[in-house]
């Protein structure tokens, strides 16, 4: 191997500083959430305790944290499933050009780049003017889909652009129906990417607030609850909540990454039968 150029070491330092910049603040509030009972929002630590976590589980004065967590979880799962299904269908359809596909593509891009407050305001107005109640599971659900679907679809477009069509042709030559081809050939091949789409669907929904702000109605989702807390809570209980939700997000990410790794490995194992000829 050729020796590393000097720029490698400079860039490594840059990269490490970047990672510190990225993770440092989150780690800091992680530490500060173990602040002692008399401690404040910044260092020094006045002892180490679980006081603020206990506080989180006991007091309900700041709002309905656990209720909002439950709602966010359910909403996240709803958005995740819908995003996966709709993105796969959309991805399959976009492989062929059909009348209107160009317009639809630009709508997807618009959905991604539109300032979130327009979705919030527009959906809110639409519901209130047509006499419907805004609720996290209806208007909130739809508003969040405008954020998660473009990501899911862009991933699916990228996947299908790299998809080897000959597998499908082989299945068709062997007499598989279109549905059988999709079910037994296409879906297993794209399964690892579907895990990625699901991860985007869930986490983007679970952390979303700008598009949910005016569309969630009277029952808040967790990010809205936290947003509300920032204006009136000035104790480390805020950090404790932040630490818990971040740990939860990290767990979710870890689960999805493990799933993706496993399904990739399974695919690698069962994908090729080269060298296993029937002797």
């Amino acid at each position: 191997m050729e020796p590393r150029p000097r720029s490698f070491y400079v860039l490594t330092v840059f990269f490490v500083v970047f990672l510190l910049f990225l993770y440092g603040p989150t780690i800091t509030i992680g530490i500060l959430s173990f602040q002692g009972e008399g401690g404040g929002l910044t260092f020094p630590m006045r002892g180490v305790s679980m006081y603020w976590f206990k506080d989180l589980f006991e007091q309900q004065a700041v709002g309905d944290i656990w209720g909002s967590f439950r709602r966010s979880l359910v909403l996240g799962l709803m958005v995740m499933v819908t995003t996966v299904v709709v993105s796969v269908m959309g991805g399959l359809a976009f492989r062929k050009r059909f009348p209107g596909s160009g317009i639809l593509f630009y709508l997807i891009i618009t959905s991604l780049v539109i300032p979130s407050i327009l979705i919030s305001l527009g959906v809110g107005l639409l519901f209130s003017q047509s006499g419907l109640d805004v609720h996290w599971s209806t208007s909130g659900f739809g508003a969040q889909l405008t954020w998660t679907l473009p990501f899911g679809l862009l991933i699916m477009f990228a996947v299908f652009n790299r998809f080897d069509r000959s597998y499908e042709e082989a299945a068709r030559d062997l007499g598989a129906s279109p549905w059988q081809t999709i079910r037994h050939v296409v879906l297993p091949i794209i399964a690892p990417s579907l895990i990625g789409v699901a991860l985007f669907g869930f986490t983007l929904s679970y952390d979303e607030f700008a598009r949910t702000l005016l569309t969630a109605g009277s029952y808040n989702t967790l990010p809205l609850e936290i947003y509300g807390m920032t204006t009136n809570v000035t104790s480390p209980v805020l950090y404790a909540l932040g630490t818990l939700t971040t740990v939860f997000s990290l767990l979710i990410i870890a689960v999805f990454l493990c799933l993706a790794l496993l399904s990739n490995r399974r695919k690698a194992k069962s994908g090729s039968d080269a060298g296993n000829g029937m002797l």
């Binding site: 299904v85 709709v86 269908m89 959309g90 399959l92 359809a93 976009f94 062929k96 059909f98 209107g100 596909s101 639809l104 709508l107 997807i108 618009t110 959905s111 539109i114 327009l118 979705i119 305001l121 527009g122 959906v123 107005l125 639409l126 003017q129 739809g142 508003a143 889909l145 405008t146 679907l149 679809l153």
Partner: peptide, 24 residues
């Protein structure tokens, strides 16, 4: 088939992207 496959997508975008912009 193309239209059938994208109809859920189109519905969501119509109801929660196009209609809100028109409303605004």
């Amino acid at each position: 088939t193309g239209w059938l496959m994208v109809s859920p997508l189109a519905l969501v975008l119509l109801a929660f992207l196009v209609a809100p912009i028109v409303m605004i």
